[in-house]
């Protein structure tokens, strides 16, 4: 009991002095669980997030755009890999995490439950969704858990390319034909509010925030990050000549920030609860990929085992 308290105190002091916790260090159970939940959720988001954009790879309107989009979606798969590996350092396997995803026990970012209806959605996702992800993720590069922080450094390097390619698509559309501009505006209309929801509930109703801040798993509150995102994005929308779909949006001279309208949290809760437009398709697609690949993974495992046996019987014969 007193020993446990000692460990706890040392742990808290360690974190307070901005030191990194490594996989082999002692850590409170709740810290470990919180991290596993957060990192695996993040990994799942990267993987599920491949689907809405993957939806347009075969239809990309130029070979250059096809190649950029394919590289982008491939990066997201890589992010999933780094993050699953980071979570594995905490004593959970990738199979266990995938199982939780496939059975609906684990969550992923709700933004990916919206459909991608036009090519402009590739622009809006890169610009807004990757943009919001960067806001959320840059602070995680300094998170107290070393393997997560290091994974995030690699992830964030690539995310800024994702955001630029999205903005570039929006720019081309905005400077294009009237139909293209309309396509861009429509995409902004559909992705704006879900992007703001990516920062999570308002601070007053966020259940994990306080402890995560103390543990330096989280460095800024949901509302702070959301405000930063709005402040960064609104001028970019102006540059594009597009209208942010919020009648309450206005610059506040006194605060030096944009004021914006209330978020429809009932929609957010619906989507989180599994009733978004694409929740079912996203999981079904993921589960189908996993199940259709089972014989392939089995074969690879069987072959590896046979090869190892052959190698060891050769050495013992020699």
């Amino acid at each position: 009991m007193t020993q446990e308290m000692d460990l706890n105190q040392r742990f808290e002091a360690y974190i307070a002095s901005d030191q990194k916790i490594e996989a082999k260090d002692w850590m409170p159970d709740a810290y470990r669980k919180t991290l596993i939940r957060q990192i695996s959720q993040h990994a799942h988001s990267e993987i599920i997030g491949m689907q809405p954009e993957g939806n347009w790879i075969t239809r990309a309107p130029s070979l250059k755009r096809k190649s950029i989009l394919l590289a982008k979606v491939q990066d997201e798969a890589g992010h999933g890999l780094y993050l699953y590996s980071a979570a594995e350092t905490l004593g959970i396997t990738r199979d266990e995490m995938l199982d939780a995803l496939h059975t609906g026990k684990a969550k992923y970012s709700s933004i990916f439950n919206y459909p991608t209806l036009t090519w402009a959605d590739m622009g809006a996702i890169g610009w807004l969704v990757d943009g919001a992800a960067i806001m959320n993720q840059v602070p995680l590069c300094k998170c107290s858990y070393g393997p997560y922080a290091r994974a995030m450094v690699r992830v964030c390097k690539e995310e800024s390319f994702h955001q630029r390619q999205g903005f570039q698509i929006m720019l081309n559309l905005s400077n294009g034909t009237p139909e293209q501009k309309e396509m861009a505006q429509d995409a902004l209309n559909r992705w704006w509010w879900p992007s703001l929801m990516m920062f999570g509930p308002n601070d007053a109703s966020s259940k994990h925030s306080e402890q995560s801040m103390r543990w330096k798993i989280k460095r800024f509150s949901n509302d702070e990050l959301r405000q930063r995102f709005v402040d960064m994005t609104v001028p970019q929308a102006e540059l594009l000549g597009l209208t942010v779909p919020d009648p309450d949006l206005k610059w506040n001279e006194a605060t030096g920030h944009y004021d914006f309208g209330p978020i429809d949290w009932s929609e957010f809760e619906q989507v989180v609860a599994g009733n978004g437009p694409c929740n079912r398709e996203r999981i079904e697609t993921r589960v189908a990929a996993h199940e259709n690949g089972a014989w392939v993974r089995d074969a690879a495992a069987a072959y590896a085992e046979k090869s190892a046996e052959r190698a060891s019987s050769q050495t013992s014969a020699a």
Binding site: I47, M50, Q51, G54, I57, T58, K66, S67, L70, A71, V73, Q74, A77, G78, G80, L81, Y84, T285, R286, A288, A289, N292, G293, A294, V296, R297
Partner: peptide, 22 residues
């Protein structure tokens, strides 16, 4: 090959097939 994106038998193979497609 790009049709395989997000349908591969494992994450590593999804990445490999995308790489080849690229």
């Amino acid at each position: 090959l790009s049709e395989w994106c997000s349908h591969g038998p494992a994450l590593e193979e999804d990445i490999a097939l995308s790489n080849i497609a690229l």
